[in-house]
Design a protein around this nucleic acid. Structure first.
Length: 193
DNA sequence: ATACCGATTAACT
DNA sequence: GTTAATCGGTATA
């Protein structure tokens, strides 16, 4: 139940942070209700030098400005007018690196997740579905993950390199050659059972 | 002020 | 495999 410290997020290697977030547990406490899931898929976004990043070229906008802030803060934004996507800001202040959480494996509050999702079977594999299950919305943009609303903790789950797959990021075809970079990390949640 | 479109999903055929 | 849903961010003027 160790909450990840600021230093975990603040490291300069966003790929290492993305890789090591696999197996960590994303926990929300929305209106006192706790829901949590093991992170099973992430993608790294390398800020100014990454054509797939909202911060490519050092661009600053009202939406992406929290990416330039301190590490360990949530960057949440609306995609396709429907989906709230959850990212963790990494690296030093002024460097807009971030890790997108694309999938979780539910471990706590599944009943609440079901109620939030309103579907027959609980799906939390997908960046828009996990945020809905955990109750994360754009209002949580800028939330400090060292606070008690949203945090990520280490419950001692080790994901060995042998079970981790990497590959190109999803949905970033517009990013030219950067769309091919192997910045996506995932493992099959079946190994948790 | 106006127009375009996306780090997606579920429900179709 | 195809597509409707849905709207804030961003660029252009």
């Amino acid at each position: 139940m160790r909450k990840l410290p600021r230093e975990f997020y603040g490291r300069p290697d966003v790929l290492a942070v993305a890789r090591e977030l696999l197996g960590k547990v994303l926990v929300t406490r929305i209106k006192g209700v706790i829901t949590a899931g093991v992170i099973t898929e992430t993608e790294a976004y390398m800020g100014a030098v990454d054509k797939a990043s909202h911060a490519y070229g050092g661009k600053v906008t009202p939406r992406n400005r929290v990416m330039y802030g301190k590490a360990g803060v949530a960057y949440v934004y609306l995609c396709y007018g429907i989906h709230h996507l959850f990212n963790v800001v990494t690296n030093a202040e002024g460097t807009a690196h971030a890790v997108l959480v694309r999938a979780i494996h539910p471990v706590q509050g599944q009943d609440v997740m079901m109620a939030r999702r309103k579907t027959k079977v609980l799906t939390t594999a997908g960046p828009g579905t996990l945020t809905q299950a955990l109750g994360i919305r754009t209002e949580h943009n800028g939330t400090d993950l060292l606070g008690n609303l949203i945090h990520i903790e280490d419950r001692g789950i080790l994901i060995p390199d042998g079970v981790v797959s990497t590959g190109p990021r999803i949905g970033v075809d517009y990013a030219g050659e950067d769309a091919l970079l192997p910045y996506r990390f995932l493992f099959n949640p079946r190994i948790l059972a």
